[in-house]
Design a protein around this nucleic acid. Structure first.
Length: 676
DNA sequence: AATTGCTAAGTTTTT
DNA sequence: CTTAGCAATT
C-alpha cells in the first residue's frame, strides 16, 4: 500500500483524486514528482492495472526518474508462474509517438524504417529547399524559417501572429519542406506529434485502441504543452476523462517554442468538471527566498494565484551585489564560492551560477579556472555536435534508410571517394526533377549514363556500399555485432585515416577517434533485443536523437560547481545559488520588449529564484563587455519587485557588518543607477 | 579540394 | 570580440 501518511493534506488530496479530470497546480519545490509517482502507485493499489496508466513527461531525464521511482513503489512481481505484470507507460510525448508510428506509419504512406531528423538535419533540409527555390535577393534565414514553421505546425489552427509576409513565405516553404522530407522517408520532431494526430484522425480505430489502453493519463510540466500535444492527450482522454495534469503556470518559460500556458489556464474549457488541487507547501527553500519569489511573480497578470511557504524558517537574507563590470562580477563570485568551501565547508557541487544567456558563461569560466574551481557547464555545444559524431550517425542513418538524402549527402564524399560537389549537385538536381530521393537517382541507369565513366564508377561503388550494408543489417541469422561491424566499416572506408590526415595535432585526431569508439561501445542496446541488427540500430538511433544529452549526465556526480542558464535550471535545485547579470537587456532580455514577453521574463526570474535552497546571491553590473565593447548597464527592473526586507547589500555588508539603513540606501543606489 | 579571408551577426533550446 | 558561413583564391 502506498504510504499516504507521508504526504501533506494537499498532496494527499491530489493522490487520492483518481477519477475524472484533475489539475494539480504544483508550485516550485512542492513535491510534484513525488505526487505523480504516489498517484500512480495509488491507482495500482486501488486495482487499476498498471498497463492502463500513461504518464507523459517532456524530458527523457524526467521520464527515467519517474520510471525508476515508480518501479520501486509498485509491488514486486511474484515469483510463481504468473505472467510478469505490465508496467505503466512512462515516456515523453515524442517517444510515445514514435512507438505508435513505428507500428502504424505505413497507413500514412511512409515506410516503417523512417528516419527522424535532428535539429541539424532539419536545418540542412531547409537549406536544401531554400536553395532549390532561389528566393530573390532577400536573405532567408533557414533557422528563422524552421522556427516559424514549427510554430505554425504546433499551433491550434495553423494561425500565428507575426509578420504576414514571413508567415506567407513559411506557409509556402512548408509544402516544399514537407515533400522533401517525405521523399527521404524522414520526419522531424514536430511531425512525430502531427503524424500521430493524423493517424488518429484518418484511422479512428488506432485512436480507439489508445483510448482503450490508456485509461488513466497524466501529464507532467503541463504548462509547457503546445497545441498539438494538447490535442493528442485530449483526444485520448475526452471520452473517459481520467486526465490528470501537473504543472505551474508561473514556470512557463517556453512560450517562444510554442508552449501554450492557456492549456493550463483554460483547462476548464475542455474539462469543466476539473478538480483543482494547489500544492503550496515548499520543501526546498527558506521563507526569505519564497517571499521574494512570491512578490516578484505576483506582478504577472493572468495567473492562478499561489503563495509558496515552507516550514524551514526565514533563513538568511538574499545578498545583492553591484559590480563594476562582468569581469569583476565573475571574479568576486568565484572568490565567494571558494570562500564558501574553505570557510563554511560548502562543497563545490552545492553551489551553482545561473545566467540568462550562454555567452555570460565565458568570463565566469575564466574566473573559476583562475581560482582553481572545478565547474560543470550545462548545455552549450554537445557531444553530438562534433563533426565525426555527426558523420558517423549519418552513415548509420544512410545504411538504414538510403533514401535519407540529408545523411547520404553528408557522407557521400566523406572521406573523399570521387563524388565531387558538382557530381552531388547534379545528382540532387536529377532527384528533384524525378521527385525521388538521391539514392533512387544515383541507382537509375538513365542518370548514371549522364556521367563520365570515372564518376560513374564512383557512383556505383558508393551505391554498392550503401546497398551491401543496408542488406547486411536486415539479416536475421548470423551474428552481426553492431559495434564490431561499425568499427570495421569505419576502418574499411578510410574514415580513421581521414581524421588523422585532416588533424595536424596527433592528439586531437586520437581524441576524435576515441569519441567515435566510445560511441560504438553502446551500439548494441543493452535494454532492447530484436532479431535484426537493423531494428536494434533503429532503436539506438532513436535513443540518441530523442535523448541527445543523455551522455552528459555522468559528470553530475562529480564535485563541481554548476554553470547553467535559467532555462535549463528548471526542475533542479541548489543549496547555494548565484543569479548573475540581473540587468535590463539581459533579464528582461532586450528582445522580450519588442516581442512583448515581459511576463515570461519575469517567470524566468521566478524560476531562477526558486532554485535556491539555503542561500541566494543576486548581482548586476554597471557595465558589461558587449561584443568586445564595454557598454553601460542598468539594474533589472525586476530587482525593484523584491521586498526590501528580504535582501541586503552584500557590498556594504562586507565593509560594515551591521547597518540599520542598509536596505534603504541600497534602493536609493539602485534607483540612481537606473536613472543614470 | 582545401585553405584563406571577408562579412555579418550575435536569447533562451525539454524533443 | 567571436564565430559561422560563404566566396574567392591557390
Amino acid at each position: 500500500m502506498v504510504n499516504l501518511a507521508s504526504l501533506n493534506p494537499q498532496q494527499r488530496h491530489a493522490v487520492e483524486t483518481t477519477e475524472g479530470p484533475v489539475l494539480i497546480l504544483a508550485g516550485a519545490g512542492t513535491g510534484k514528482t513525488r505526487v505523480i509517482t504516489c498517484r500512480i502507485a495509488h491507482l495500482v493499489a486501488k486495482g487499476v492495472s498498471p498497463g492502463d496508466i500513461l504518464a507523459v513527461t517532456f524530458t527523457n531525464k524526467a521520464s527515467r526518474e519517474m520510471q525508476e521511482r515508480v518501479r520501486t513503489m509498485l509491488p514486486r512481481p511474484r515469483r510463481d508462474g504468473d505472467a510478469p505484470p505490465e508496467r505503466p507507460t512512462i515516456s515523453t510525448f515524442h517517444s510515445l509517438c514514435v512507438r505508435i508510428l513505428r507500428l502504424h506509419i505505413e497507413k500514412l504512406g511512409y515506410k516503417r524504417n523512417f528516419t527522424i531528423y535532428s535539429d541539424g538535419e532539419q536545418m540542412s533540409a531547409m537549406k536544401k529547399v531554400l536553395s532549390s527555390i532561389k528566393i530573390g535577393a532577400e536573405k532567408t534565414d533557414a533557422r528563422e524559417m524552421l522556427s516559424l514553421l514549427s510554430r505554425i505546425k504546433n499551433s491550434k489552427d495553423g494561425q500565428i501572429s507575426g509578420d504576414p509576409n514571413l508567415i506567407a513565405l513559411a506557409q509556402h516553404l512548408r509544402i516544399k519542406y514537407e515533400s522533401s522530407l517525405r521523399a527521404c522517408n524522414a520526419v522531424d520532431f514536430d511531425d512525430l506529434l502531427l503524424l500521430t494526430l493524423r493517424l488518429f484522425k484518418e484511422h479512428p480505430e488506432s485512436l480507439e485502441a489508445c483510448r482503450e489502453k490508456y485509461r488513466y493519463v497524466m501529464v507532467d510540466e503541463y504548462q509547457d504543452t503546445n497545441a498539438a500535444q494538447f490535442q493528442l492527450v485530449h483526444s485520448i482522454t475526452s471520452e473517459h476523462r481520467n486526465f490528470c495534469v501537473v504543472g505551474d503556470d508561473d514556470q512557463s518559460i517556453y512560450g517562444w517554442r510554442g508552449a501554450e500556458v492557456a492549456n493550463l489556464l483554460d483547462l476548464e474549457k475542455f474539462y469543466p468538471e476539473v478538480k483543482v488541487v494547489k500544492l503550496e507547501q515548499n520543501y526546498r527553500s527558506t521563507n526569505v527566498i519564497l517571499r521574494a519569489a512570491n512578490a516578484v511573480i505576483k506582478n504577472n497578470p493572468r495567473r492562478r494565484p499561489k503563495q509558496l511557504w515552507s516550514k524551514q524558517g526565514d533563513g538568511l537574507l538574499i545578498q545583492l551585489h553591484t559590480f563594476k563590470d562582468d569581469e569583476e562580477e565573475a571574479r568576486v563570485i568565484a572568490e565567494e564560492i571558494e570562500a564558501n568551501r574553505t570557510m563554511r565547508g560548502i562543497p563545490w557541487n552545492e553551489q551553482a551560477i545561473l545566467f540568462r544567456t550562454n555567452i555570460q558563461a565565458r568570463p565566469l569560466e575564466m574566473a573559476l579556472r583562475k581560482e582553481g574551481i572545478r565547474y560543470h557547464l550545462i548545455g552549450g555545444q554537445g557531444f553530438f555536435d562534433r563533426r565525426e559524431i555527426k558523420d558517423f550517425i549519418s552513415y548509420l542513418k544512410a545504411f538504414l534508410n538510403p533514401h535519407d538524402d540529408i545523411s547520404l549527402l553528408r557522407i557521400a564524399n566523406t572521406p573523399a571517394r570521387g563524388l565531387s560537389d558538382v557530381t552531388m549537385e547534379r545528382l540532387l538536381a536529377a532527384s528533384s526533377e524525378r521527385k525521388c530521393s538521391v539514392y533512387s537517382a544515383l541507382k537509375n541507369p538513365l542518370v548514371q549514363i549522364s556521367f563520365q565513366e570515372r564518376t560513374r564508377e564512383s557512383i556505383m561503388a558508393f551505391q554498392k556500399l550503401l546497398e551491401t550494408n543496408h542488406n547486411a543489417l536486415q539479416q536475421e541469422e548470423g551474428t552481426l555485432r553492431l559495434n564490431d561491424w561499425a568499427d570495421q566499416l569505419m576502418g574499411k572506408i578510410g574514415y580513421y585515416e581521414e581524421i588523422r590526415r585532416s588533424e595536424k595535432e596527433a592528439a586531437a585526431a586520437d581524441s576524435r577517434i576515441r569519441n567515435l569508439k566510445e560511441m560504438m561501445v553502446d551500439l548494441e542496446p543493452s535494454d532492447y533485443y530484436a532479431p535484426t541488427p537493423a531494428e536494434r540500430l533503429t532503436y539506438y538511433l532513436e535513443q540518441i536523437t530523442l535523448d541527445a544529452d543523455r551522455s552528459e549526465e555522468k559528470e553530475v556526480a562529480e564535485n563541481a560547481v554548476t554553470l547553467i542558464t535559467m532555462h535549463s535550471c528548471k526542475g533542479l535545485e541548489f543549496p547555494h545559488a548565484f543569479v548573475v547579470g540581473l540587468e535590463e537587456g539581459l533579464l528582461p532580455h532586450s528582445r522580450s520588449k519588442v516581442e512583448g514577453t515581459l511576463d515570461e521574463e519575469r517567470r524566468l526570474f521566478y524560476v531562477a529564484l526558486t532554485r535556491a535552497m539555503k542561500t541566494l546571491t543576486l548581482s548586476y553590473c554597471l557595465g558589461r563587455r558587449k561584443y568586445g565593447q564595454p557598454t553601460p548597464a542598468h539594474p533589472s527592473q525586476f530587482l525593484k519587485e523584491l521586498p526590501p526586507e528580504c535582501i541586503e547589500d552584500a557590498d556594504a555588508k562586507a565593509k560594515k557588518p551591521v547597518d540599520v539603513g542598509t536596505g534603504k540606501s541600497l534602493f536609493a543606489n539602485m534607483r540612481s543607477a537606473i536613472n543614470g
